[in-house]
Simulated assay, not measured.
Amino acid sequence: MRKLIYTLLFSFLLSGIYAQDTPKMYYTDTSSAGIMIAKDPVVVRFRGKYLMYYSKQMFQNNNDGMLGWNIGIAQSKDLYHWSKIGEIKPHASYEQRGLCAPGAIVKEGKVHLFYQTYGNGPKDALCHAWSADGVNFTRDTTNPIFSPNGNWTNGRAIDAEVYFYRRRYFLYFATRDKAGEIQKQGVATASANTDFKRSDWKQASDESILSPALDWEGRCIEGASIIKRNNKLYMFYAGSYNNMPQQIGVAESDDGIHWRRLSDKPFLRNGLPGTWNSSESGHPGIFEDENGETYLFYQGNNDKGKTWFLSNVKIGWNKEGPYLISEP
């Protein structure tokens, strides 16, 4: 009996230590009519703190109808506890129906934000803005800076991700087929000395670089997020439309244009019934800290999209690619 008590006590203490060593992040934004909405996370380290940009919906005060999308800004000291510090609202004429799905990089002491317009169907396009403080942004005068062309696309561009690799900037985006039914990935490039204006971006492929092909990917691949490891690029991507469920997969590339999947199964699945992310684990944002540690940020919910939360998991690496260190 005494041995059993000691065993149970040790297990309890060990579980407490484990919980302290593996904190959990759950963040949402309630600033619009008290509704919990935060999606599409991207994180950068800037001036000694972490900044997270994300999509947030705008509702009428009486919660009678959604008005559009803005971009929220939160900060953190530890990647787990976040507080909202700002919001980017429609300003230019091309943003009047909304702006969302941010991508972000830090270059020469400024945060560069890449985002999409909202509510224009096939005419939604990618835009660029920059900030010296990470909160107040100046729009690029050439906005929108990119939309794709060719028989493989309907001209739409969303979910921007910019990554520097082999002396070029790669701009990854999601688009749709001519019928507007299949969502898939494309890419454009610009030279190392670009200031990201419209004329600098050249479409790098006249076809999709990654289209849905697996059962769990449904009719959608979107939300590409890129990191370099093992002298190659890895793309974390969202497969299937929201709440179908959307889950996260991984592909790799030697040149940034031609991609191959690491597995025919999701890297990060949606949660089991009753868990906070049972409806989906989607829209990845891979973040590499200054010490080389990496965290996969993503969105989830358990009510088919009535609310949305953001979380992260710590990622490890070996010669085969990424693996989960912490549990969702």
Rank of each mutant, 00 (worst) to 15 (best):
Y172W: 01
R97L: 13
P90K: 06
R47E: 14
I248R: 02
Y54S: 00
V187W: 00
K178V: 07
G16A: 08
R229C: 02
T142L: 06
A192S: 13
E252R: 12
T153H: 03
W69P: 02
K56S: 13
P245E: 01
S199R: 11
I209T: 05
G134Q: 08
G103T: 00
I325L: 15
K123N: 15
A132N: 14
P144C: 04
P322Y: 03
Y237H: 00
H112C: 09
M244H: 13
I209K: 02
S240W: 12
Y54D: 00
R261E: 09
K314S: 09
Q60G: 15
P23G: 09
K110Y: 09
G305C: 03
R168V: 06
P102I: 08
T153N: 02
F46R: 06
D206G: 13
F196A: 02
N243I: 05
A190S: 07
D78T: 01
I88L: 15
Y26F: 15
S15L: 13
M58H: 10
S211P: 03
D159K: 01
E288R: 14
I73Y: 07
I17N: 05
I227G: 10
T28Q: 07
N291S: 09
G16P: 04
I85D: 10
Y163I: 10
G256P: 01
Y295N: 06
E207N: 12
I35R: 12
I227D: 10
K306S: 11
M244G: 09
S15W: 10
G134H: 08
F59Y: 13
N230Y: 12
T22E: 14
G121I: 01
G218H: 03
R139A: 14
G271Y: 04
D303H: 05
S15N: 12
G155V: 00
N230H: 11
